[in-house]
Write a protein that binds this DNA or RNA. Structure first.
Lengths: 262, 262
DNA sequence: ATCAGAGTCTTGTTTTACAGGACAATAGGT
DNA sequence: ACCTATTGTCCTGTAAAACAAGACTCTGAT
C-alpha cells in the first residue's frame, strides 16, 4: 500500500486532470455547459478550454448540444456498459435480484462504494407498483444514510470507516438522518453482528431499506443488495422477514460469484 | 467482435487526448488493462502512463482491479446516467417503448447515431421471451446493418450519408449484410419514401428488425425506435403490421418531444 | 445597426509534462 | 531458497508541449 505516511500529492492540476474535470462539471441540474463556463471553472483562458473541449468532442465523450454548449456524448454510455461488465456483478446478480423483487414486490438495488460515495450498479423492479422508488443505474447515494451504505461500511476496518465518515460531509436529509460519526460507528458494529441493516426514513422520509452484503471469492464485501420500500407499506414486524430474504439473495449471489471467480 | 483500430495516427495527440485514449482501450474482451500495456499503446514511457493512470483513478474514472491492472470506475456509470438524461429522450420514450414491447412481445430499442456508430440508448423488453435479443444500453451497432442504423442514415443529407458509409469500414456480418455503398444509398432512398425500415438477418442471421425515426421539435431525426425479433417468429406478411406499430410509437414519442422542447 | 456571447485559429513565450532510471513489492518458475 | 518478470511509485534535468492573449467569424437579441 502506502510506502510512507507522507503522500506528497502532486500538483492536482495537470493537463489531463483539467480535461477530466470538465466531465465532472455535469450534474443533474447542469446537463449542458458552455466553453466560457468551462474556462472560468478551470481557471484557464478560453482558448485553452476550447482545446480541451475539442479533444473531448473528438473522442465523443462530449457532443455539441443543439442551441450551443456541450453535453455528454454517447461514448460515455458505451464505456458505462463495459464498466458494468467489469465488476462481474450484474450478470450474476440480476436474476437473483429480479426473483427477490418479484417475491417482495418492491424495488431491489445492487450498490457498490467508491470512496465517499455509494453508486447504484443495478436495479430490479417489481412489475406495477403504484409508487416508484426511482434509483437508476449510476445514481449516487450518501455514505451516512440508507441501508446499503451502512452495509458497505460495516465490513471494512473500523478505522477506515471512521476516516471516511469524518472526511465526508454528512448531510442531514431528514430528521432521522444520522450525522454523528460515533453514533454511526456503533450502528456499524450492530450491523456487523446482525449481518444486515435496516433503515427507516434516514435518506428519504417515506422510504425504508433493508440491505445485506455480497462477498467475493476472498470473502471481501464488494457490494450490497438492498430492498427499498415505501415505509408505510412495511410494518416493523415484517422487517425480519425482509432481512431474511435479502440475506438469502445476497448469499446466493456471493456463492455464484465465488463459483465464477474460482 | 471487431478489434479496435490498430495503432495509427500519432498526429494530434495532446496530453488530454492521451489520457482520454486510455479510456478507449477498454473493450468487451479487454476489461482490465495494465500500466505497461497503456504505456505501450500510447507510445510513452511507463512513468508517464502511470501519471495519467493516477489522474484517472483520482477522479474515479478508473479503479485498481483486484489482482493488478486497472478497470473502469464507478464515475463512468455516474456520468452515463447524466448522459442519458441529457438527450431528453429516455424519460419521454420509455413508457411508449414499454407499451410497444408488451404489445408485440418483442424487444424494443431506442438508438442514436454518433459519427460512424449507432448506440443503444434505451431498451424495453417483453416479459418472458424464451429467446433474448440482448442489446443493452451502451451497446454499439454498425452503420451498415440493422434496421435502426438505416433509419438514422436515411434522413441526413445524401452526401453526408455517403461520406459516412465510405469512411466507415463496412464489415460483413452475415451473407445478407450489405457492404456496397451504392446499394445502401438506394436502400436509404427507399426507406425515406416508406417512412420506416425492415431488415432481415443482415446483422445477425436469426434476427429481423423494423425501425422508424423519432424527430425533435425542429423535425430533425434525432433517434430511432426499433423492434428486434427472432426472424423465424415474424413472417413477411406480418412486417407491415409491425412497421405500422413502430411508426405509431415513434410518432408518439416525437410529439411528446416537441411538446417538451417547445 | 449594434451588441454580446459562442466558437475557432494563430503566435511567441515559458511553463509543464516528458523520458529515463532507481526502487520496492509481488508472483511464478526452477 | 533462488532468480526473473511483472506491477506500481518516485525523482530529476531537459526540451517539447501547452499556455494566454488577442484577432476573427457567426450567431441571435435588442
Amino acid at each position: 500500500m502506502s510506502g510512507t505516511a507522507s503522500t506528497s500529492y502532486r500538483e492536482r492540476n495537470s493537463t489531463a486532470d483539467r480535461a477530466l474535470d470538465i466531465l465532472l462539471m455535469f450534474t443533474d441540474t447542469h446537463l449542458v455547459v458552455s466553453g466560457t463556463a468551462v474556462a472560468e471553472r478551470l481557471g484557464v483562458a478560453r482558448s485553452t478550454a476550447y482545446r480541451y473541449l475539442q479533444s473531448l468532442v473528438n473522442s465523443r465523450f462530449l457532443e455539441e448540444a443543439p442551441g450551443g454548449g456541450f453535453r455528454l456524448g454517447l461514448r460515455v454510455m458505451e464505456i458505462a456498459r463495459l464498466a458494468r461488465r467489469s465488476y462481474g456483478l450484474s450478470e450474476v446478480a440480476l436474476p437473483a435480484m429480479t426473483t427477490l423483487a418479484e417475491d417482495v414486490r418492491e424495488t431491489v438495488l445492487l450498490t457498490r462504494r467508491t470512496g465517499e460515495l455509494v453508486v447504484c450498479v443495478d436495479r430490479a423492479e417489481a412489475g406495477t407498483g403504484a409508487v416508484r422508488i426511482s434509483y437508476e443505474r449510476g445514481s449516487t447515494l450518501p455514505l451516512n444514510a440508507g441501508a446499503a451504505a451502512l452495509v458497505l461500511l460495516a465490513w471494512i476496518p473500523d478505522e477506515d470507516a471512521r476516516r471516511l465518515l469524518e472526511s465526508a460531509d454528512l448531510r442531514r436529509f431528514t430528521p432521522a438522518t444520522l450525522t454523528d460519526v460515533d453514533t454511526l460507528m456503533q450502528r456499524l458494529a450492530h450491523i456487523r453482528r446482525a449481518g444486515y441493516s435496516v433503515t427507516r426514513g434516514e435518506l428519504d422520509a417515506d422510504v425504508m431499506g433493508v440491505a445485506a452484503p455480497v462477498r467475493d471469492e476472498k470473502q471481501q464485501v464488494v457490494a450490497a443488495v438492498s430492498i427499498a420500500a415505501l415505509a408505510s407499506r412495511v410494518f416493523p414486524e415484517a422487517e425480519a422477514e425482509l432481512a431474511r430474504k435479502v440475506q438469502e439473495t445476497a448469499r446466493e449471489i456471493s456463492e455464484r460469484l465465488t463459483a465464477v471467480g474460482g
